[in-house]
């Protein structure tokens, strides 16, 4: 067996047979034996691989002590140096899914070890790891274990043996969003004509290049009473305090800044200016409120038209900022605003 490839397994306290919710606070532990799903897993590796141990960690502990847990687990993985890392399956369990996802991503990205995990398609951990790990699509509860494990083991086997992994449909994993160039039997024009005929007949057809789906967020409910509402001001127009203390990039922004404006009536020059690289800055530098109208909002507050202007003003630059960064900024800023109890947001863009 010593010639076979090595698999290291991760499970939570429940599947690690430590206990239920009461044990969710346990710290990560390493066991050199095969526990829970890891036990059956080895039998599915066609005698060519062995599970060298099981890491068990409480779901709550992991989620509350992410950095520490990750560091500890990564060190363990480094020591054991497996050929393949396996986590879960987590089905639709949220905290377990996030743990599997974060660990999978860290192992794949930082240690460059191939990873297999399993999740239900709606598991909140999925997006974190599907690009770097093979995530087998599972049912939403542990009843799907018997189906999930063979699929995961089959991928682990191929990864361990250095074999090519087939398509998501063949192997049962969730597409990672990678566009793989392949040679197929039918030439493009024939595929086009067949697609056309299906379309004309009203039959189902599948495009080869799905357009990006813009997920739509339902409009939030309107503010009931403006005179009691706290309004926050945000801009992607790059208005920053003189000297740009946080070094917000003029383009392709990597970060956002927030500045206390509770004691100000306006974002006036020369205390503020624009660092945005995408437009003629003359007008904005003359009167920065032309980009981020703090002055008017303060007036409306004084008049009692709105209750309050939120004490912090948020800013970044829009030009060339990647979609993923924009999403990240929005998520971070939104979280702060939500926690601060802000009722509405004005975002200005140039």
């Amino acid at each position: 067996m010593s010639d076979g490839f090595k698999v290291l397994y991760y499970v939570n306290q429940f599947f690690g047979q430590i206990g239920g919710e009461d044990k969710a606070g346990m710290k990560p532990e390493f066991h050199s034996e095969k526990i829970g799903p890891a036990l059956g897993f080895e039998q599915l590796l066609k005698g060519e691989g062995q599970v060298v141990g099981t890491i068990i960690c409480g779901d709550n502990y992991f989620n509350e002590n992410k950095e520490e847990s990750l560091e500890y687990i990564l060190n363990l993985v480094k020591q054991e140096a497996p050929d393949v890392f396996v986590a879960g399956p987590a089905f639709n369990a949220g905290r377990y899914g996030v743990a599997c996802a974060e660990i999978s991503r860290a192992v794949a990205e930082e240690l460059n070890i191939p990873v297999v995990t399993g999740m239900y398609i709606e598991n909140p951990g999925l997006d974190t790891c599907k690009q770097v790990a093979y995530v087998v699509s599972t049912s939403d509860n542990a009843g799907g274990m018997r189906k999930a494990l063979p699929a995961m083991a089959n991928i682990a086997y191929k990864l361990g043996k250095g074999l090519e992994i087939g398509s998501p449909e063949e192997e049962g994993y969730i597409a990672r969003g990678m566009r793989k160039t392949i040679i197929v039997e039918k030439r493009g024009s024939l595929r086009a004509v067949e697609m056309l005929i299906k379309r004309l007949k009203g039959e189902e057809f599948e495009t080869e290049m799905p357009m990006p789906v813009f997920d739509v967020v339902e409009p939030a409910l309107a503010i009931k009473d403006l005179s009691k509402a706290t309004i926050a001001l945000c801009t992607s127009g790059g208005i920053v305090p003189a000297g740009n203390p946080d070094r917000i990039q003029s383009a392709s922004a990597q970060k956002w800044g927030k500045y206390d404006v509770s004691g100000r009536d306006a974002l006036n020059a020369p205390d503020f200016y624009t660092t945005h690289g995408g437009y003629d800055p003359v007008y904005a530098n003359e009167i920065p409120d032309r980009v981020a109208p703090l002055d008017i909002l303060k007036e409306l507050q004084k008049e009692g038209y709105i209750g309050n202007v939120y004490e912090f003003f948020y800013t970044t630059t829009g030009t060339g900022t990647s979609v993923s960064n924009a999403v990240k900024f929005g998520t971070e800023i939104g979280k702060e605003l939500k926690e601060a109890g802000v009722d509405g947001v004005i975002l200005t863009s140039t």
Partner: peptide, 22 residues
């Protein structure tokens, strides 16, 4: 950014020149 903030249930208004991008 707009979408992610609104996802928290906070109404947000986008003041923008290129409304198609908006």
């Amino acid at each position: 950014m707009v979408k992610e903030i609104e996802r928290y249930g906070i109404p947000i208004v986008h003041m923008a020149t290129i409304t198609t991008i908006s």
